[in-house]
């Protein structure tokens, strides 16, 4: 269903675009949560989704790794491509997709297992490690990427649930990173954290950009401004404006974006 125009667009952006969404609509039963959203998410870039509560930014994020499949009444229309491949194609296995598109949730959700087993879980189920030494190395590398290695290296076999909230969230990031994803989705990853932990996670997000395409949903506009290069503003299920973060925050084109950023709506 693509017209010539979009083919040209795709051609221009081909080496930078990681995820391309076109005309995405999401319904919960009869209720439409996302109305015709099209967006291109770049590789090795932090993209922030901002907008008032209930605007659909989390719903849209969960479309990108088909987590909405787990909700029975949820229906997704439109076209979402990862590296040009339609992720809603029946031939695509959502399990493999989620290994490529990792996710970090709003509330830290470590498994009731040891720190080591939390991180090793993904590599184990995907058979990424050939030996115990291999797995040890993956776990260490992931914990280092999660910027938590130094804090937990002496207690890898203690339960992950015993860590503080901020540590738990970084553990969850390390766990997501351990499966070697290409895209990392973060659904308000700092909303349950204190300011110091938030600062640590934000610093981490900036480092993750070197290896991954990161998409972060956030309520905090300061956070979006601090960590992202691209920003998308959602309002009532519509993607109102999408552009460079600096542009959105200093010189928004749409009056709704300006109202939100200056605090008049939301």
């Amino acid at each position: 269903m693509m017209n010539d125009m979009s083919k040209i667009e795709q051609g221009i952006a081909v080496d930078a675009v990681k995820i391309q969404a076109r005309g995405v609509q999401v319904f919960y039963g009869e209720k439409q949560a996302i109305k015709d959203v099209s967006v291109e998410i770049l590789d090795k870039t932090v993209t922030a989704f901002i907008g008032p509560s209930g605007c659909g930014k989390s719903t849209f994020l969960r479309c990108l790794n088909r987590m909405n499949d787990t909700i029975d009444i949820c229906r997704v229309n439109g076209d979402i491509r990862l590296d040009g491949e339609d992720i809603y194609d029946p031939a695509i296995d959502p399990v493999q997709l989620r290994a490529k598109v990792g996710m970090v949730f709003q509330k830290p959700n470590p498994f009731p297992k040891s720190i080591y087993d939390n991180v090793a879980y993904g590599p184990r189920i995907h058979g990424l490690a050939r030996s115990k030494a291999d797995l040890d190395e993956i776990v260490e590398r992931s914990l280092r990427r999660g910027a938590i290695w130094d804090e937990v290296k002496d207690r890898l076999h203690e339960p992950g649930t015993g860590l503080s909230g901020g540590q738990q969230q970084r553990l969850c990031i390390a766990r997501a990173v351990a499966t070697e994803p290409e895209v990392l989705l973060m659904d308000e990853p700092c909303s349950a954290l204190d300011p110091i932990a938030t600062a640590q996670v934000e610093e981490l997000i900036d480092e993750l950009r070197l290896n991954y395409s990161v998409v972060i949903v956030t309520h905090s506009m300061q956070q979006a401004a601090r960590v992202s290069q691209k920003t998308a503003f959602f309002h009532l299920g519509n993607l109102v404006e999408y552009g460079d973060t600096g542009q959105i925050f200093t010189n928004p084109e749409d009056p709704r974006t300006e109202s939100y950023i200056t605090g008049r709506i939301g």
Binding site: N65, M67, T70, V95, Q96, L97, R98, A99, K100, G102, M103, F105, K107, N109, P110, F111, P112, K113, Y121, G122, I125, H126, C172, R175, A176, T179
Partner: peptide, 23 residues
């Protein structure tokens, strides 16, 4: 959240049940 966490790592439903929910 535990279920979501396992699924988001690319675990199948059986793996989620066996390794995360069951324990």
């Amino acid at each position: 959240s535990l279920r979501d966490g396992a699924l988001a790592l690319g675990a199948t439903r059986a793996e989620t049940v066996l390794n995360v929910l069951f324990p």
